[in-house]
Simulated assay, not measured.
Amino acid sequence: MRVLLKVRMNTEKANDAIGNGTLPKLIEATMEQIRPEAAYFTAEDGDRTAYLVFDMQDSSLMPVISEPFFSNLGARISYTPVMNYEDVQKGLSQLR
């Protein structure tokens, strides 16, 4: 299932992770692990935030993906099922 992973990082812990080199390594490891089709990085309400869209093969991956962000960055994480345009078209065609 295609999901949107939103990672909102605690500013103080993210500052420390930048200072000690943990943040770039964590992001790189996550990118290699989930191979997102899209990845965006921004600030939301003053927090560093990442939006990653990827295909989650099994929900048992949630702890594996989430825990490094929780333990290293004090992050708040959400997973949201999402569709691309082709998915919407496929779904709507089934309504006829």
Score class of each variant (00 low, 15 high):
residue 1 M to E: 08
residue 1 M to N: 06
residue 4 L to G: 01
residue 4 L to T: 04
residue 4 L to C: 07
residue 5 L to Y: 02
residue 5 L to R: 04
residue 6 K to S: 12
residue 6 K to F: 02
residue 7 V to K: 00
residue 7 V to T: 02
residue 8 R to K: 12
residue 8 R to E: 14
residue 10 N to Y: 00
residue 10 N to A: 05
residue 11 T to E: 13
residue 11 T to P: 07
residue 11 T to M: 10
residue 12 E to Y: 06
residue 12 E to F: 06
residue 12 E to C: 03
residue 13 K to C: 03
residue 13 K to W: 08
residue 14 A to E: 01
residue 14 A to D: 00
residue 15 N to M: 12
residue 17 A to Y: 01
residue 17 A to Q: 05
residue 18 I to E: 04
residue 20 N to T: 04
residue 20 N to L: 02
residue 21 G to W: 09
residue 22 T to N: 05
residue 22 T to P: 01
residue 22 T to I: 11
residue 23 L to P: 00
residue 23 L to S: 03
residue 25 K to I: 04
residue 26 L to W: 03
residue 26 L to D: 05
residue 28 E to A: 15
residue 28 E to S: 14
residue 28 E to Y: 11
residue 28 E to G: 08
residue 28 E to R: 15
residue 29 A to M: 05
residue 29 A to I: 03
residue 29 A to D: 12
residue 29 A to F: 04
residue 31 M to I: 13
residue 31 M to F: 11
residue 32 E to C: 02
residue 32 E to W: 06
residue 32 E to G: 12
residue 32 E to M: 12
residue 33 Q to E: 13
residue 33 Q to S: 09
residue 37 E to T: 13
residue 39 A to P: 04
residue 40 Y to N: 07
residue 40 Y to D: 09
residue 40 Y to Q: 09
residue 40 Y to G: 03
residue 41 F to G: 12
residue 42 T to S: 14
residue 43 A to S: 12
residue 43 A to M: 13
residue 43 A to K: 10
residue 43 A to C: 08
residue 43 A to V: 13
residue 43 A to G: 09
residue 43 A to P: 02
residue 45 D to L: 14
residue 46 G to T: 09
residue 46 G to D: 05
residue 47 D to A: 14
residue 47 D to M: 14
residue 48 R to G: 13
residue 48 R to Q: 09
residue 49 T to M: 04
residue 49 T to Q: 04
residue 49 T to L: 01
residue 51 Y to F: 15
residue 53 V to A: 11
residue 53 V to W: 02
residue 54 F to D: 00
residue 54 F to P: 01
residue 55 D to Q: 13
residue 55 D to R: 13
residue 57 Q to R: 11
residue 57 Q to I: 09
residue 57 Q to M: 11
residue 58 D to I: 06
residue 58 D to M: 08
residue 59 S to W: 09
residue 60 S to I: 10
residue 61 L to H: 08
residue 63 P to C: 02
residue 64 V to D: 08
residue 64 V to A: 12
residue 64 V to L: 10
residue 65 I to T: 07
residue 65 I to H: 02
residue 65 I to A: 04
residue 65 I to P: 00
residue 66 S to H: 05
residue 66 S to P: 03
residue 67 E to S: 09
residue 67 E to F: 06
residue 67 E to D: 11
residue 68 P to M: 08
residue 68 P to H: 08
residue 70 F to K: 08
residue 70 F to P: 00
residue 70 F to N: 03
residue 70 F to Y: 12
residue 70 F to G: 05
residue 71 S to C: 06
residue 71 S to V: 06
residue 71 S to Y: 06
residue 73 L to R: 00
residue 74 G to T: 01
residue 74 G to C: 03
residue 75 A to W: 00
residue 75 A to I: 02
residue 77 I to L: 15
residue 77 I to N: 03
residue 78 S to L: 08
residue 78 S to T: 15
residue 79 Y to E: 02
residue 79 Y to N: 08
residue 80 T to R: 08
residue 80 T to W: 00
residue 80 T to I: 10
residue 81 P to I: 06
residue 81 P to R: 04
residue 81 P to H: 09
residue 82 V to L: 06
residue 82 V to C: 07
residue 84 N to V: 07
residue 84 N to F: 03
residue 84 N to S: 10
residue 85 Y to S: 14
residue 86 E to C: 04
residue 86 E to H: 10
residue 87 D to M: 04
residue 88 V to H: 09
residue 88 V to Q: 07
residue 88 V to E: 05
residue 89 Q to H: 09
residue 89 Q to F: 06
residue 90 K to Q: 13
residue 90 K to L: 13
residue 90 K to G: 07
residue 91 G to F: 12
residue 91 G to A: 15
residue 93 S to H: 13
residue 93 S to N: 15
residue 94 Q to G: 15
residue 95 L to S: 14
